[in-house]
Design a binder for these strands. Structure first.
Length: 717
DNA sequence: TCGAATTCCGTTTTT
DNA sequence: CGGAATTCGA
């Protein structure tokens, strides 16, 4: 396919991809070989004499970076080019220029739960009641601000009303706590790096000398911080190449700004733009449906999906009675495919939310089909893994109080909450880090001799590890696991302790792999790298197992056979994305991404009943089903044991007239209506689907509900 | 101080 | 319904 791709480019396009100096934008649909364009460009640049070290390619996930390295190597561009995610790049920049940023180079990268601890401390310090300000919302707000490069000081200046002033206070305090712990959250990595590169001429010059060619994949999902960083990095040499597809932007909720890619031409007026509309991946039926679906988005530039493959494919939409039957049908179909000799690595099942993997897993286990849930963070979220990593974090960064609090009494060594409170109190009064306060336990008032002894023992143990933080990580990890008593406490706690030990052993072997691969293995570097590992990175196609993953994790992947389950109102589109047109369109893009992952066969399904918080609830088929094509407009039987099937490859049948007992007059957004249990509300949206029309109403009691018009019994007010 | 019991809490998506 | 956080009793 690589050759096919290059051959299909016009000579001028090929020249641009291979030799262009100056800005270049590749706008391309799914399956068009966007990522391969980048790989080719890397190889071509190196071939024409550019030093590999002068090339910097940025991918969306670590997994994608790994794949790109391999592809580049296969094209003869072995080693040297810097290929990583934005976050990894920022870690490198910040470590190198730590002094200029005013942080320690051994900073800890704080994940969501670490952030939460710091935020709760900040809220407490500011005397703010968490019922009035939910910590999750605050964290979200801070994250949004950081991704817009608004730091605590800048936000304070623009805060006007009571709410924003309060938020500014918390933001500042939160930031102070992070600084004291020498910790950076994910957004800090981007914000601090971007501001540094923008404002420090020397740093910017050094960086653009080092990276004379910048290439960015999945540009449609960059946020403002990433955008500004990229712009600053390329400002002097202007060798910026971006690839992306606005129709595949699915991270708006995380700050991704689709305007970045739409405004590329304005930012770089001399940009050469290449459009790739041919799709090398999917069969025609799949592309036709994908095209109809995405055409429903109004805020979009028209783009064609031109199929190249001529092979017959299968595309079906099936309705099932409930989620268990849906899951079982998927597992059964997978079983059939495997029996036909299809490899498990060519099959994947996608869903909107992680919780939906459960029913699938049960069905796969029942049918003894090997599967892999692609959710790598789960591993790093396990208690035993977090505990061991917390020890290592304290060794690498003694100021990391969050990590220290986690491990000072794990396993239990008689240093409980009361003791810790006394030490923390002493620490904050005398301006010490927690670890420093533990070290000087003798000065902490109110501690008994026994406790002091235990603390001294702890300090002694940690000090003995400290000599080993340079060099290979695995031996240190192993030693810490053994000598802290973590291992024996796990071994002594039954069979689940045994699996915990195995998990830790797996962690140690990944550390060993790191030691082997790194030029200069060091604990700090290892910790900062694994902090950025994610869901999709853990996916191992080589294992031959069927992959189960969220639609978000499916980004950038492709499979011979793909299943998408749960096409129900409230799930896809998700109910929390029902506030405005923009969010609905993002849900549609998400489904579009899922549909276009399939190479040959695509199976879409929904369940008529789905368990929600333990309760079986009736569902409403997703409007997206109808948008796939008119073939799917049909009524849904009340309770039908036989799965209803409707195939594109079946002979087209006359479109059934909607079966509706009483066809109510259509509703329009803005109208007032009355519901017999929810009362009066205003119509937010009306989706006309004949007998399955859906109405979204914002009721006066504050609730917003999606209802099947047929059953809603509404009267106009 | 620690484990067991109990409440309560909640369900997007992730670098 | 299931997991996490918190409280309770020893």
């Amino acid at each position: 396919m690589d050759e096919a791709l290059l051959e299909r480019l016009t000579p001028s396009q090929r020249r641009a991809v291979c030799h262009r100096k100056g800005p270049l934008l590749v706008l391309a649909g799914p399956g068009s070989g966007k990522t391969r364009v980048i790989t080719h460009r890397i190889a071509a640049l190196i071939e024409s004499g550019v030093r590999p070290g002068n090339i910097c390619a940025i991918t969306f996930t670590n997994k994608a970076a790994e794949e790109m390295r391999q592809r580049a190597a296969a094209l003869g561009a072995s080693g040297g080019a810097h290929i990583s995610t934005f976050h990894s790049l920022c870690v490198r920049i910040l470590r190198r220029y730590a002094v200029a940023v005013g942080i320690g180079p051994n900073f800890s990268v704080y994940d969501e739960s670490d952030q939460m601890r710091c935020l709760k401390e900040a809220l407490h310090d500011c005397d703010i009641d968490t019922t009035s300000l939910p910590p999750g919302r605050v964290l979200e707000a801070i994250s949004t601000l950081k991704s817009k490069l608004i730091d605590a000081e800048a936000f304070k200046l623009q805060a006007e009303d009571f709410f924003t002033r309060t938020l500014a206070k918390v933001y500042a305090r939160y930031q102070k706590i992070l600084t004291e712990h020498n910790g950076l959250d994910f957004d800090d990595l981007l914000m601090k790096a971007a501001l540094l590169v923008e404002n420090d001429t020397t740093v910017r010059q050094e960086l653009s000398d080092r990276f004379q060619y910048l290439l960015i994949d999945e540009y449609q999902d960059t946020n403002h911080a990433q955008y500004r960083l990229a712009k600053a990095m390329a400002s002097s040499h202007r060798n910026i190449c971006a690839t992306g597809d606005p129709d595949q932007s699915i991270y708006r909720w995380r700050g991704a700004d689709i305007r970045n890619i739409l405004a590329f031409e304005k930012d770089w007026p001399d940009a050469v733009i290449i459009k790739l509309e041919e799709n090398f991946r999917s069969t025609a039926a799949i592309l036709e449906a994908a095209d109809k679906l995405i055409a429903c988005n109004r805020h979009r530039k028209q783009k064609n999906l031109v199929p190249v493959r001529t092979q017959e494919g299968r595309f079906s939409v099936d309705g099932y009675e409930d989620e268990a039957r849906e899951a079982d049908a998927v597992a059964q179909r997978v079983q059939e495919l495997l029996a036909q000799g299809v490899s498990g690595r060519d099959i994947a099942v996608f869903y909107r939310i992680n919780a939906m993997s459960r029913a699938l897993e049960e069905a796969f286990i029942r049918r003894r089909v090997a599967y892999q849930v692609v959710r790598g963070v789960e591993f790093y979220n396990r208690k035993e893994i977090r505990d061991l990593l917390a020890y290592l974090k304290v060794l690498a960064n003694p100021a990391d109080d969050v990590a220290l609090q986690r491990i000072i009494n794990a396993p239990a060594r008689g240093i409980g909450k009361v003791t810790l409170d006394k030490i923390a109190d002493h620490a904050s009064r005398s301006g010490l880090t927690l670890f420093a306060a533990v070290r000087s336990a003798n000065e902490v008032p109110g501690l008994t001799g026994g406790v002091k002894e235990k603390l001294a023992e702890f300090v002694k143990m940690m000090t003995s590890f400290a000599g080993q933080i340079e060099g290979n990580v695995a031996p240190l990890a192993e030693r810490v696991f053994r000598e802290t008593g973590l291992e024996s406490s796990l071994r002594g706690s039954g069979p689940e302790g045994q699996t915990a030990v195995e998990n830790v052993e797996e962690l140690i072997s990944t550390a060993a792999a790191y030691d082997k691969q790194a030029d200069n293995p060091a604990l700090v570097d290892y910790l900062q790298q694994i902090a950025l590992f994610s869901d999709a990175d853990a996916y191992d196609a080589v294992s031959g197992q069927v992959a189960l993953m969220t639609l978000h994790a499916a980004k950038g992947l492709e499979f011979e056979h793909a299943f998408i389950i749960g096409l129900e109102t409230g799930l896809l589109p998700h109910e929390r994305a029902n506030n405005n047109q923009e969010e609905l369109e993002e849900e549609r893009r998400l489904f579009f991404v899922g549909v276009t992952r399939a190479k040959t066969n695509l199976y879409v399904s929904y369940a008529r009943y789905r368990a929600f918080r333990g309760q079986l609830l009736r569902t409403i088929p997703s409007q997206f089903l109808y948008e796939l094509g008119s073939q799917f407009v049909r009524e849904v039987p009340e309770s039908d044991e036989v799965p209803l099937q409707c195939r594109l490859d079946a002979a087209p049948r006359p479109q059934p007239a909607p079966v509706v007992t009483t066809r109510p007059a259509p509703f329009h957004p803005g109208e007032l209506v009355r519901h017999k249990t929810f009362g009066v509300g205003r119509v937010k949206k009306f989706v006309d689907m004949g007998g399955n029309s859906v109405i979204v109403i914002s009721f006066n009691n504050g609730q917003t509900k999606s209802l099947l018009l047929q059953y809603a019994e509404l009267t106009k007010v």
